[in-house]
C-alpha cells in the first residue's frame, strides 16, 4: 500500500484529507502537525507522496521542502496546499521538485485526481529501466547497475554522475555535447564549467571500470559517448 505523509498544522484540514485518501485511494496516511515533526518523519521514513502546507504555525513549508530536497529525491512526490499561492512561490517550489500546488479551500475531487496521477507516475517510473548492453538505470529509484558475471553490481553514483550517465545511455552510443552535460549539476537550470564536466566524467569512468564492456569515449572538441567493447562478451 502506498504511504502518504501530510504535514499540516490544522487538524481539521489534515483529518479531512486523511479521511478522504484512506477511503478513496487506498493509501496509508500519516500526519505531522508541526514543522519539526514533519521534517523528522519525512527524512526518516520513505513516503510515496508528501502533502505539505506552506504555513506551518509561522514556519515555512518551502523551507521544509528545501531541506527535504537536499536529503532525498522528491521529484513528483510533493504536493503543496496553501491558501496563498504566489507566482514566486510556485517557481521556487517547482525548481525544488514540487509536483503540484493546490489552493485552500481544496476541491477534494481535484486533489484526489492529482494524487492519483502522481501515484500512477510513481508506479510507472518505479518499473522503468533504461539499459545499454550490461548497464542498467532504474529511473524511479535513480540507481545505476552493471551486470558482471551474472551479478547485478550497483555503481553508487552521485546525483550528477547519475544524470550524466542517463544522458549518455539515452543517446545510445551517439555523442552528447559537453554543453548538454554541463546542465546536470544540482541546479539543472545553471550550467557548470566544462572543467567540472570533465571531473565528473573522470569519476564516472572509474566507476564504470567494473563492467569492462561499456566505457565512455571522448569525441575531441565535442563531447562524450558510450562505446561497447566488442572484444568482451555481454554477461
Amino acid at each position: 500500500m502506498r504511504r502518504v505523509l501530510i504535514i499540516e498544522d490544522d487538524k481539521s484540514f489534515s483529518r479531512l484529507i486523511k479521511h478522504n485518501l484512506e477511503n478513496d485511494i487506498n493509501t496509508d496516511v500519516d500526519v505531522a502537525d508541526n514543522y519539526l515533526k514533519g521534517l523528522s518523519m519525512a527524512i526518516n521514513t520513505d513516503y510515496d507522496l508528501y502533502l505539505v502546507d506552506l504555513n506551518l504555525d509561522g514556519e515555512s513549508g518551502i523551507d521544509l521542502i528545501k531541506i527535504l530536497a537536499k536529503n532525498k529525491k522528491i521529484d513528483n512526490k510533493v504536493i503543496v496546499v496553501s491558501a496563498v499561492i504566489t507566482k514566486e512561490l510556485q517557481i521556487e517550489g517547482y525548481n525544488l521538485g514540487v509536483s503540484n500546488f493546490v489552493s485552500k479551500p481544496v476541491d477534494l475531487d481535484l486533489l484526489k485526481a492529482i494524487m492519483r496521477k502522481n501515484l500512477r507516475m510513481l508506479d510507472n517510473s518505479h518499473s522503468e529501466i533504461l539499459s545499454f548492453y550490461n548497464l542498467y538505470l532504474n529511473l524511479g529509484e535513480r540507481r545505476a547497475y552493471a551486470k558482471v558475471d551474472e551479478q547485478k553490481e550497483e555503481l553508487n553514483l552521485s546525483p550528477t554522475e547519475y544524470t550524466i550517465l542517463f544522458k549518455l545511455l539515452n543517446a545510445r552510443g551517439n555523442v552528447v555535447s559537453k554543453e548538454e552535460l554541463s546542465y546536470t549539476g544540482k541546479d539543472e537550470n545553471k550550467a557548470m564549467s566544462f572543467k567540472s564536466v570533465e571531473m565528473h566524467i573522470s569519476a564516472l569512468r572509474k566507476k564504470l571500470e567494473i563492467n569492462k564492456i561499456v566505457h565512455i569515449e571522448s569525441k575531441w572538441g565535442v563531447g562524450y559517448y558510450l562505446k561497447y567493447n566488442q572484444n568482451k562478451q555481454v554477461a
Partner: peptide
Amino acid sequence: SLLGHKLAGNAGSYGLP
C-alpha cells in the same frame, strides 16, 4: 490572523464557504 487563516483554509473544504 492565524485563526482567521486556518478557518479560511478549512471551512470551505468542509462545505461551509
